[in-house]
């Protein structure tokens, strides 16, 4: 046993296209590019944890060999402060050394759908300007948020959520490799909780394995590592009319985890619309409507905490009425 350990999602990320177990069509087409040593601009679209990043990295690996890292530029649109930073980085990268037997390098731009339309226009110009020496792989959850001119310059790949068997199989494989005991139904539960998101599934598996044997019980405990338990508590307090406590806990969660208002709102939304609370449909509609408004305000650059507080105040206002009525 080595003294060092990694996050399994990285440790078991397929290195080359051959190792990728699912998305056969996509893999076949990508392999063809490798053979021809010619890659077009590409758009990989699909939900989180379906292998977009893995495919992009594996392609680079197969194209450039073990030392592929120096020939790719990884950017995350939601982390880079604006298109100017991206432009500077791409410019520098384009000038760097080209690989010996492939005439271009790769820019992998994750979360490209988080860019504003203006930024995407600038991106389009970048793609044209440097296309002699660089190819872009854009990764996105929602292809519809990518503007037409960019889409039309890219070969489009649609990544689908992994089927249950594939996920469970992979989890089993990891357990075997790690010498971790696991129950099949626990792995199935992990699949259910992760909703086809492979990375999430592996993360939950690793958390559960840290508790010992991977049982259904361990999985339920492990799922607590993410906030839903606290998020649920906040919502529960608010729905019972206790705004003060809910708001205090909200501040704790935001400060402790450094989450953005949008992150928290999305969790709220998921919990409220999901099965966690048995809310009357009428209340759900009201809340969904207000959540939409709050999200819009957040996008307009409004103060995170006050928006969420307003949302909690709304819950505290409506919750007791509806809940009282349904009991």
């Amino acid at each position: 046993m080595s003294a060092e350990e990694l996050l399994w999602a990285e440790k078991y990320r397929p290195k080359s296209l051959d190792e990728i177990v699912d998305q056969e069509d996509i893999v076949r087409r990508l392999k063809k590019f490798v053979e021809e040593k010619n890659v077009p601009h590409m758009l990989f679209a699909g939900p989180p944890g379906t292998g977009k990043t893995t495919a992009a990295l594996a392609l680079a690996h197969d194209l450039y060999g073990e030392r592929y890292r120096q020939y790719i530029l990884e950017l995350n649109a939601s982390d880079e402060r604006g298109i100017d930073v991206i432009r500077t980085k791409v410019k520098e990268f384009a000038r760097s050394k080209t690989p010996p037997d492939v005439p271009f390098k790769l820019v992998i731009l994750d979360e490209a759908d988080n860019m504003t339309a203006d930024a995407q226009q600038a991106l389009r110009r970048l793609m044209e300007m440097y296309s002699a020496t660089t190819r872009f792989i854009l990764l996105a959850n929602f292809p519809s948020k990518i503007i037409e001119p960019v889409q039309s310059r890219c070969v489009y790949f649609r990544f689908r959520p992994l089927p249950k068997e594939k996920v469970v199989e992979r989890l089993e494989y990891i357990c075997k490799k790690e010498g971790v005991e696991c129950e099949r139904e626990a792995l199935e539960e992990i699949y259910n909780l992760s909703e086809g998101d492979m990375r999430r599934a592996v993360n939950i598996l690793q958390a559960a394995a840290a508790l010992g044997k991977v049982t259904k019980d361990a999985v339920y405990k492990a799922i607590g590592y993410v906030h839903p338990s606290k998020v649920k508590e906040i919502l529960d307090l608010a729905l019972n009319g206790d705004f003060t406590k809910a708001s205090k806990l909200l501040r704790e969660v935001m400060i402790e985890y450094g989450l953005s208002g949008l992150d928290v709102l999305k969790m709220f939304q998921k919990e409220l619309m999901g099965g966690s609370f048995e809310l009357p449909e009428e209340l759900k509609v009201l809340l969904a409507d207000y959540a939409g408004e709050v999200q819009f305000r957040l996008a307009e650059g409004a103060d995170d905490e006050i928006q969420l507080q307003a949302f909690l105040a709304k819950l505290a206002l409506l919750g007791p009425r509806f809940r009282g009525a349904s009991r």
Partner: peptide, 20 residues
């Protein structure tokens, strides 16, 4: 290290490591 955004790291990986 994980080829993800910082906000994913904050929302998912840090809590995961913290749990472990």
């Amino acid at each position: 290290l994980s080829h993800v955004s910082k906000s994913y790291a904050k929302g998912e990986l840090i809590p995961l490591l913290s749990f472990i």
